[in-house]
Every structure is written in C-alpha cells, then in structure tokens.
Simulated assay, not measured.
Amino acid sequence: MANESLSLFPLHTVLLPGASLGLRVFEARYLDLVRDCGRSGRGFGVCMIIKGEEVGAPATAAAFGTEAVIEDFGQGDDGLLTLRVRGARRFHVERARVRDNGLQVADVRWCEAGAAEPVRPEHGLLSVLLESLIEKSGSEYAHADRALFDDAAWVGWRLAELLPLHDAQRQELLQLDDPHARLDRILALVS
C-alpha cells in the first residue's frame, strides 16, 4: 500500500477503531486542520502523546494511531469548537514533519483491517464480559447487532475501549494486527 499524507492531532488518550471521542478545539493549527478536513471530506490522525503536551510545542507521539472521522461539531458553553469523532482505520507513521503553524503531518501506512473472524472458544468468556459491560454502562452499543459479539476484532476493540485500562495498555492493543492476539492480551489483562 502506498503511503498517504495525514494531519495529526496528538492527544493524551488512545482513539480505537469504532470508538467515539469528544474534542475541544481552540489552537489555530487544529482549527486549520478541522477546516481542511471539512473541505476535503477526510479525517485526521489521532496518536497518543509519549512526550510533551497537547498544547504549545509539537509533542512526540506514538507511531501507531487511528484515523478520526468527524461525526458532529458544535460550540461549547465556553465558545470553543467541539467535535465528536469516530475512530476508523489504524495507521503506522512512517515519517512526520511539522508545518510552520506547528501542525504535524505524517506519511502513514494504513494497517490492514482483515476479514471478520469469529471469536475463538478460548475467548468466549470475553464476549460475555463485553455484553455485561455494555448492559451495565448503557453505552451506545446497547443495541448492537448480536452478530458483532462473535466478531473477534469488534469484541477486542469494544473491550479495549470499555475496560478500565491505562492508555499505555490501550496503545499496546492498538498496535496488534491479529484480533486473536489482541483478545489473548485482553484475557491476560483481566485475569
């Protein structure tokens, strides 16, 4: 797959495929990014910050991230732009550069999504755990199609999103390509 250019929005959090995230945007470089996304109809990349802060000087971000697609926008009580984004494709940063306005732009390689694979018997308990978490939290997944609970990738992403994990653990899960390896790791984390 050829590399593609993607603007980055480094954060002190991990955006997972399929997950929703609320953002407040106030820095000029990120307002420019949102404007560009609106014009082009494209998303931007969210990478977890390894070193540095979300505001000010460009931060050092993880090499793996998730494309953020803008689902909704508005204005907060404080007058700032608010966004609701959804995680889409995973990517690996091959090379990053900083524009004059401080915005980081990266050449990214998209990670293969892979075909849907059924949850293996040894991970069956994780599907039950996920159902329980969704039921208790009343999350947006309460009305999810029953078939999704047998999709190894979907179960893994939703558990990574809903379990009380540290961002470093979520980042580790994001970097795994194999959905069964991801479920193995989640099983180790919850036991």
Rank of each mutant, 00 (worst) to 15 (best):
N3R: 08
T13Q: 11
V14G: 02
L15G: 05
L16E: 11
S20E: 10
L21K: 02
L23M: 04
V25G: 09
A28D: 15
Y30F: 14
L31S: 02
D32N: 11
D32R: 11
D32I: 00
D36M: 07
C37S: 15
C37V: 03
R39A: 15
F44H: 07
I50C: 06
E54K: 03
E54T: 12
P58T: 09
A59K: 06
G65E: 09
G65F: 04
A68S: 06
V69Q: 15
F73S: 14
Q75V: 14
G76I: 02
D78W: 11
G79I: 08
R89F: 01
F91A: 00
A96I: 13
A96Y: 07
V98R: 12
D100G: 05
E112T: 10
E112P: 08
P121Y: 02
L125A: 13
L126Y: 05
L130F: 04
S132W: 10
S137Q: 13
G138A: 05
A144Q: 08
A147S: 15
L148D: 01
D150W: 03
D150K: 02
V155N: 11
L159V: 07
L159Y: 00
L159S: 03
A168G: 14
Q175M: 15
L176Y: 08
D177N: 13
D178R: 00
D178V: 00
I186M: 00
A188R: 14
